[in-house]
Design a protein around this nucleic acid. Structure first.
Length: 266
DNA sequence: ATGGTCGCTATGCGA
């Protein structure tokens, strides 16, 4: 089975690329982030015509996450236990940043971790709280079933090591590389979820995101911020992985490239 | 070749 994750940066503007990606790489399950649409706006038909089912949550033009599968889509869950809200008082809102389903026997999560914006922004605390809650929930899932096959896939908005950014200096004083963010990411790893792509896509210079501005992509100025973190049982099934850098090329590309993981049959 | 932001019921904001 082949599973993948992609921050598509609007599914309505990139549905053709998404379906072409699924077919080009014979992907069974795809998680999407930043669909940027409400549920009723999601372009279901092209996916269904290609043989896929879709579970999506989106409340407005921001965020939005989905699981796309041709190997079943059972027990859809929107959000996770303890997931923080954004905003104060009556404005506090549950954002569309997490959805999951069981596909092909694997509990697949599509996660869009809050950006953080800047180191002195309340959004950074939201990001850290969000990751701490995910760590807590993820710890519980493995405590309940140590053999569970769980994939935490998506845009984590964190570059875990210096090797995961094109310039350490460039990101000093900015989000994505701070000690606090890296600690929050490491805590999820320490809870039992390992980066199963890195062994198959070594660095340096291996990225999943390139800013639209300043010719970042042709200048190879990127970051590795999209990950598949796998539970121990699932990690044992990973036979290969790659980043589809080709998808970042050309007119109409997302600013993120898809990440693909191959699972051996059980 | 991959090319000096993009996408959103927007005209500023979030990324």
């Amino acid at each position: 089975m082949r599973i993948a994750t992609w921050n598509c940066n609007s599914i309505r503007s990139r549905v053709d690329r998404a379906v072409a990606f699924l077919e080009r790489h014979d992907v069974d399950v795809l998680t999407l982030q930043e669909t940027k649409c409400r549920d009723e706006q999601f372009p279901l038909l092209p996916f269904e015509a290609a043989g896929y089912e879709v579970a999506h949550v989106g409340h407005n033009q921001w965020n939005g996450v989905a699981v796309v599968s041709r190997v079943g889509l059972q027990d859809v869950q929107v959000g996770f236990e303890g997931m923080p809200t954004w905003g104060d008082g009556e404005a506090a809102a549950t954002e569309a940043r997490a959805i999951s389903a069981v596909a092909g026997g694997v509990r697949v999560w599509s996660l869009y971790v809050p950006n953080g914006r800047s180191l002195d922004d309340p959004h950074l605390l939201y990001k850290l709280d969000w990751l701490a809650a995910l760590r807590e929930a993820g710890t519980g899932w493995l405590a309940a079933d140590p053999q569970a096959e769980i994939a935490l896939m998506g845009d984590w908005n964190i570059a875990p090591t210096d090797e995961d950014v094109w310039s350490v200096e460039h990101y000093l004083g900015r989000t994505h590389t701070s000690d606090a963010e890296r600690a929050a990411f490491s805590a999820v790893v320490d809870a039992g979820y390992s980066d199963v792509v890195r062994p198959h896509a070594p660095g340096p210079g291996t990225y999943t995101y390139w800013d639209y501005t300043q010719l970042a992509f042709p200048k190879r100025r990127g970051m590795r911020i999209d990950f598949c973190l796998a539970s121990p049982a699932l990690a044992g099934r990973v036979g290969g992985a790659f980043i589809d850098r080709e998808e970042r090329k050309g007119k109409g590309a997302s600013d993120h490239a898809p990440v693909v993981v191959d699972l051996t049959d059980v």
